[in-house]
Design a protein around this nucleic acid. Structure first.
Length: 612
DNA sequence: CGTCAAGGTAAGGGTAATGGTCTGAA
DNA sequence: TTTCAGACCATTACCCTTACCTTGAC
């Protein structure tokens, strides 16, 4: 099948692998739960924090402080029916796609089951797999294997009719794969997968899922009110962790294979989607009824879900794009469709209707994202504020930018412009900022990471520095120096190592789902959430072709890339280093692989402050 | 006329993307 | 010496939440 796109190839691999994974999982669980204990650790060993014993893994025992990993286990264990349904649907997909095959050359999926699973993230202790990823040029074959599990027994094939041999995917070239699948009708596969992807994307009551397809429920990985944040792996655990085996993944920039947020209880879900509750009302319900709702940035997946929901709303009612915009920005009450906001809110579980309202109105605003402000616009804005005051909607009409953008431009760049200083901070300024922050937080028993009002700080700096300047200077520079006893810490390979393991432990579908504030722990807390996020982006962008990879694929590569610590930093892991003065370069070096393999456990948490 | 819910506006806090400079290793 | 990657710093557009206000139904 010449000209088959690589996306289609990957999509097919994914479909088959996913279907078989799902099937094998359900078969495996049905036949013997004991197999689940076959993991990196012997069953009698105490499990890591994030890997509770199997007895813990019932939905009923799920505590509010459950971990993400727990969630995944819960979903997986309790989701036999879901798997069966998903599997049945995938089965139908492939059956439909292969219906036109002229001969029965087909996929022997048992070939894949010897390799590591890209589903590893859903089934942490499941070692069966179908597709190997990434290819050897990433150096995965060089990664030391720890506690290689015994070969996984092979459950019955999901696609017994597709029994022809196929080259081992782990080492096969694309050509081999293509030859093996050449008789499958790729257009049908692609169509079916698109449907599947859309269903997963929508994962909502707005859309009707394909028959038999039950979208899996899932851990929530964003900020969730009233939920103790699922802790990521501790820094100590990260340092002690063996590099995980490779697992395959698939080429979709948004990876929907991991489940999304678990729907709230039906009553709460209805309330969130229909009641316009303000912050205090929400807080009250969190307290009194244990309401769980999501805060923070909308992830790329939520964006997609909303987009799909709006599209469905449009199609169901036969509306045009303009009519949808009229609903979103409706000014008059006449002809108002009150179901719109409630309906699209159901597409993003755990989001309150008010948050969706604000988000969608910004996202769909015709004046959004116009880039840099020109001096002419600045003058127009300045004049408009002089004439109209801070009535941003009116100012917006005159300037031609969104009201919030006008407000931001004014407060951040126009107001007090004559006083504003830019460029590097002087020592005097840094001391002044440190003093002001200390006075406003520490001296009042508050947290200097979270309880600072930056507008006030800027005022107290005489408006010579803006709120954003003050905040960034503090969170990304001065605070870590203060925490580090006056020494400026530098980002080290072990920080990168910890970060990768922590991100990995979150098991998110996409890095936009990460709540970066939850990453630091007591031993590793020098870096602000903002810094960590930027570090992550830097690491991610160091991977060639990262734009076309899913989070899982990026994770796979970084996990290996950052698997080893340079000897010079390995020694530091044996004790907590808090300042440059404490670093002894002559300390014996610990073989990082020994530590990685769990032979040597670090005594304490890692140094989070490797000095120059 | 008071109350309540829906939703519009403003304000405060925060993040993402990007670019420049410096530094150290190859 | 040159080149390059990445650490560090700064800027600024963009985003989310919350408080408060307006409007209309009851």
């Amino acid at each position: 099948m010449a000209g088959l796109s690589s996306d289609i190839q990957r999509a097919l691999q994914l479909a088959v692998g996913e279907a078989n994974n799902a099937y094998v999982q359900s078969q495996t669980r049905k036949t013997s739960r004991k197999k689940r204990a076959r993991n990196e650790e012997p069953p009698e060993k105490p499990r890591k924090k994030n890997k509770p014993s199997e007895q813990d893994q019932t939905p009923a025992s799920q505590s509010p402080s459950h971990t993400l990993t727990n969630d995944i286990h819960h979903q997986d264990l309790s989701g036999d029916n879901n798997h069966a349904s998903s599997t049945a649907f995938l089965n139908a997909v492939v059956a439909a796609a292969s219906a036109t095959s002229s001969d029965s050359q087909s996929l022997d999926v048992s070939q894949f089951q010897h390799h590591q699973s890209y589903h590893h993230t859903m089934i942490p202790d499941q070692q069966a797999s179908y597709l190997s990823y990434p290819p050897a040029h990433y150096g995965f074959h060089e990664v030391p294997q720890f506690d290689q599990p015994p070969p996984h027994p092979q459950p019955q094939q999901l696609f017994p009719g597709l029994g022809g041999p196929i080259p081992d995917f782990q080492y096969a070239s694309n050509d081999d794969i293509l030859r093996a699948i050449q008789d499958i009708d790729m257009s049908k596969i692609a169509t079916a997968l698109k449907t599947l992807g859309d269903a997963a994307a929508a994962n909502t009551s707005v859309t009707s899922p394909p028959p038999g397809f039950v979208p899996p429920a899932a851990p929530n990985t964003d900020s969730v009110q009233a939920l103790t944040h699922a802790p990521s792996t501790s820094s100590g655990a990260a340092l002690n962790a063996a590099p995980k085996s490779t697992k395959s993944s698939h080429k979709r920039v948004l990876d929907m294979s991991l489940p999304g947020p678990e729907p709230s209880n039906p009553e709460h879900a209805h309330m969130l989607a229909n009641k316009w509750m303000n912050a205090s009302k929400l807080a009250e319900l969190v307290k009194s009824q244990g309401l769980i709702y999501k805060k923070g940035k909308f992830s790329a997946i939520e964006e997609q879900q909303l987009k799909t929901a709006i599209e469905n709303f449009k199609i169901c009612r036969g509306l045009s794009d303009d009519q949808i915009l009229e609903i979103i920005f409706q000014k008059n009450e006449k002809g108002k469709d009150n179901t719109f906001w409630s309906e699209i809110t159901t597409a993003v579980p755990q989001r309150p209707i008010i948050a969706v309202y604000h988000h969608v109105r910004r996202t769909f605003h015709p004046k959004k994202q116009q880039g840099k402000w020109t001096p002419e616009e600045d003058n127009l804005l300045k004049q408009a504020v002089t004439d109209l005051g801070q009535q941003w909607e009116k100012v917006s009409e005159r300037v031609g930018r969104m009201s919030s953008d006008c407000r931001d431009r004014y407060r951040n760049h126009i107001a007090n412009r004559e006083l504003r200083v830019t460029g590097p901070w002087s020592k005097v300024e840094e001391d002044e900022l440190t003093r002001i922050v200390a006075e406003m937080t520490i001296q009042q028993g508050k947290d200097f990471d979270n309880d600072v009002f930056w507008g006030i700080v800027s005022d107290r700096m005489g408006n010579r520095r803006g709120r954003q300047q003050c905040r960034i200077k503090w969170t990304d520079s001065l605070s870590k120096t203060v925490k580090n006893e006056g020494q400026k810490p530098r980002w080290s390979p072990q920080d990168a190592y910890i970060l990768v393991h922590k991100v990995d432990s979150l098991k998110v579908r996409d890095d936009t789902e990460i709540d970066w504030k939850t990453l630091p722990d007591s031993d590793w807390n020098l870096w602000s959430a903002h810094s960590l996020q930027r570090r992550w982006l830097t690491m991610k962008r160091s991977i060639k072709g990262y734009e076309d990879m899913t989070h899982q694929e990026i994770m796979d590569i970084l996990r290996v890339k950052k698997a080893h610590l340079p000897p010079s930093t390995a020694s530091m892991r044996r004790r907590k280093v808090t300042s440059a003065a404490s670093v002894d370069d002559h300390e014996p070096v610990v073989d990082p692989e020994l530590v990685n393999g769990g032979t040597i456990a670090p005594e304490a948490g890692p140094s989070s402050s490797v000095a120059d």
